[in-house]
Computed example of a mutant assay.
Amino acid sequence: MSVPSSVSNNLPALTLHLAQQGLAAPDLGSAMMPVLDALVGNTSAVGAAYFQLRAPEQTYYPRATCGDLGPEPLRRALQHGGLPATLPIVQALQGHPDVLFFEDTRLMPEAAAFAELAIFGLCAAPVYDRQGQLVGALLAHTFEPYAWTGAERTLIRSVTSLLGLLAARLDAEERERDAHESALRALGLCLEARDAETQGHTDRVTALAVQVARRLGLDETELRALRWGAYLHDIGKIGIPDAVLRHPGQLSTDMWTLMRGHVQGGLQLATQLPFLPQTALDVIALHHERWDGGGYPHGKRGEDIPLAARIFAVCDVYDALINVRPYKRAWTHQEALTHIQAHRGTHFDPRIVDVLGEVLASAETAGEPAQAVLA
């Protein structure tokens, strides 16, 4: 199908519409989908995909796909194998300023690998970052040789130029988020080393909280904020003296007052990081609140406690119970789960207790110990 004249005549409006959607998108994959939809809907391409560079592997993996990607072996090859930087089509895109159009990939050495996958009509657009590095590639295809029309080439160049601007911005933002995440996790591990926590608590409780949250339907942006809050949940303990933090027995009243103060201290420190989303701050500030209002520091109850904090509270207690602490032995999985279920509707949100049980049971059903979900 060639570009309808109505689309060709209204290309500026389409480009503006795609720009507005892309600028409002929370991540690169979401920003790509309207562009891919426009290509498949308004050209003869039957399928399209955006591939983004994963630097350590020097391979471009799909972040968004649309339309017919062919039989399962082809989809699997694209999804898991990606486009290695050494692939001739990627080499051809390196430094190329324009979209490459192939009417028959069997006749072009740069695209011969696609002919082996029964893709014969192909267009490939490079996406560069601000430093001129190839960070992505947009591909659209047909399963038979095809001569791309002038109108289609105009449309493809227009939307891929827009995509390049969006992808460069969003790629930079994602790299910055990745750097933030690595730094926050490192900080959490440093705090863990000073605290009386069992080694690995930070990663275990974060992994468990993410699994519970995913089952509850949180999206990727919410999951990232939950992870960031989990990494820093006890950052306020940096101001707690070792004599209190590592005390082997029951805390005195004065010690307990100091220990409880780590929540407000942690929030004060965390708010100095302007990139932390509110959900992450909620986890830090409110993970010691209780469903029945008996927690601290504010005595919030029920759904007045943000969902991320309620999720993390259950997972934090579970992990603390099943691991050795200076003041206790490690409980078994069943002992810990029984304790948490006994406090369903008092300490913990009943729905989250149920979902935690489902997550842990799924590991056992798969023949793994319940603790395997924390790995």
Rank of each mutant, 00 (worst) to 15 (best):
I235L: 15
V263L: 14
W291T: 00
D282A: 00
G229S: 10
L286K: 09
L267E: 07
L356I: 01
D282K: 00
H287T: 01
G266N: 07
R301K: 11
Q341I: 07
G266A: 07
Q334K: 13
D234Y: 14
G295Q: 07
I311M: 04
G261T: 09
D254E: 15
P277K: 06
D304G: 03
G236W: 02
H339Y: 15
R351E: 12
T271I: 10
A280Y: 02
I311Y: 09
D254S: 14
R351F: 05
G265A: 13
A336C: 13
A313E: 05
V283E: 08
P306E: 02
A309F: 02
R246G: 10
K328G: 06
W331N: 05
F312V: 12
I240H: 11
I240D: 10
R310L: 07
A336H: 10
Q334V: 09
V263Y: 08
Q272A: 13
V263A: 03
L273W: 02
N323Q: 14
A285Y: 00
G302N: 06
H347W: 12
W331M: 12
M255A: 06
G357K: 01
L232A: 07
E303C: 03
I240V: 15
I305K: 03
G299K: 03
G294S: 12
H298P: 00
H233E: 12
G265F: 10
E289T: 02
G229Q: 06
Q272K: 08
V263H: 06
A270G: 04
L276R: 01
G261I: 05
D242G: 09
L245S: 10
I311G: 12
G299S: 05
H262Q: 15
I322G: 09
T279Q: 14
P277L: 05
H233T: 09
L232N: 01
G357C: 02
R329Q: 07
P248N: 08
A308T: 01
G236Q: 01
G357D: 02
P277V: 03
I238T: 09
G239T: 14
W256C: 11
D354R: 12
H288F: 12
A285M: 02
L286H: 08
N323S: 12
H298W: 10
T332D: 03
W331Q: 12
D354T: 15
V283S: 03
L267H: 02
L232F: 06
H347Q: 11
G345N: 06
A309V: 05
A309E: 08
H233C: 06
L286P: 04
H339K: 15
L245D: 08
I305E: 08
V353W: 11
I240M: 13
D282Y: 00
S252L: 13
L276G: 07
P274S: 13
Q278M: 07
A230E: 07
L251W: 10
S252R: 11
W291Q: 01
